[in-house]
Every structure is written in structure tokens, then in C-alpha cells.
């Protein structure tokens, strides 16, 4: 599961393997910081995701920047519907093609099940920025799907 999360973010199996291993080692070293009632799996997953984000930041010099735009409304130009016959692989490919800043937020929200607030903490962004970028990313994804 954690490996999949890492692959989705870094888009490379080798790098994902390395960073999952590093994350487990880091987890062992910092296990004393884990509170008694905390979820070990979620805690380890968070380490993996943070490491994966660090990796792409280093690799591509990506900086997640806050935007001061007003929150865009939910009413989008595109229709938030996908045809049921569409393949998962195609959607995966579309997600991979998205701009990095949208792709990461979409993955964290749609697949990793983090909410906007958690994503804003992970990426050190304002929650409104995360919401805007999620919306724009989702619109772009839907456009790609609809173009098919």
C-alpha cells in the first residue's frame, strides 16, 4: 500500500522502493515519537508520502506556492461525470499527464483519502490554495477524459 502511494507520487518504481525502505528505517528510529493512541499504519504512510514529496521537490525543483486567489466556486465548466466504460489505466495515464502541482493534490485527495486540510498541512499550503488547485486539476483531468 505504501509502496503504491510512493510510486504514484514519484512515478518511478526504483525510487519508490528506496524511499519506502528509507521511510521504514526512519519510522524505526522515530518510533518513540509515536503517541500510544496513534495509528502506526497512517503514521508510516505519512512518512512515506513526505519522503516522496521531498524526492520530487529535489528532483524537479518543484515548489508548492500559495495562491491568493478567491476560492473558486464548485460550479465548473466541465461536468464531473465519467463514462462507466472508461478504463482505470486510461485514468491513471491522464493523472500522470497532469501538471505536477495538480497531480499531487489529486492523488492525495482522491486516492490517498486525505482531506483538503490534511493536504494543506502536508504541502505547507493554505487550505484555499489546495481547494483551488484540486478543482483546476480535476477540471483538467475531466477534460482529458472527455476528449477521448
Amino acid at each position: 500500500m505504501m509502496f503504491c502511494s510512493a510510486v504514484r507520487i514519484v512515478k518511478s518504481r526504483e525510487e519508490a522502493e528506496d524511499l519506502v525502505q528509507d521511510s521504514f528505517i526512519k519510522g524505526f528510529e522515530k518510533i518513540h515519537q509515536l503517541k500510544d493512541d496513534a495509528n502506526l499504519g497512517a503514521w508510516l504512510k505519512r512518512i512515506v508520502i513526505n519522503k516522496a514529496l521531498d524526492t520530487i521537490r529535489e528532483r524537479k525543483n518543484i515548489v508548492f506556492v500559495d495562491e491568493t486567489f478567491v476560492l473558486e466556486t464548485e460550479q465548473a465548466n466541465t461536468i464531473d461525470e465519467v463514462p462507466s466504460e472508461i478504463s482505470v489505466d486510461f485514468i491513471k495515464k491522464c493523472i500522470y499527464k497532469l501538471k505536477e502541482k495538480y497531480r499531487i493534490i489529486l492523488i492525495l485527495y482522491m486516492i490517498e483519502d486525505y482531506n483538503h486540510r490534511e493536504i494543506s498541512t502536508i504541502l505547507k499550503l493554505k487550505e484555499s490554495t489546495v481547494r483551488n488547485q484540486y478543482k483546476r486539476g480535476k477540471d483538467q483531468l475531466l477534460k482529458m477524459i472527455q476528449k477521448k
Partner: peptide, 28 residues
């Protein structure tokens, strides 16, 4: 079907990657 619902429904397909067998030795 909404996109998030679609992904959630097919989540297993999104999490099918497995680590290679070499990685065990490396990790050890």
C-alpha cells in the same frame, strides 16, 4: 459516476503495484 467515486470504486487497480523481490535483500 463522479470521478472520485469511480477511483474509489476501482481503488484496488490503483494499488496493485508490488515491490520487487530484490528489494527484500536490499532492505535487509
Amino acid at each position: 459516476m463522479k470521478i472520485k467515486e469511480f477511483i474509489q470504486e476501482h481503488k484496488a487497480a490503483f494499488t496493485s503495484d508490488k515491490m520487487s523481490s530484490n528489494s527484500d535483500a536490499n532492505f535487509e
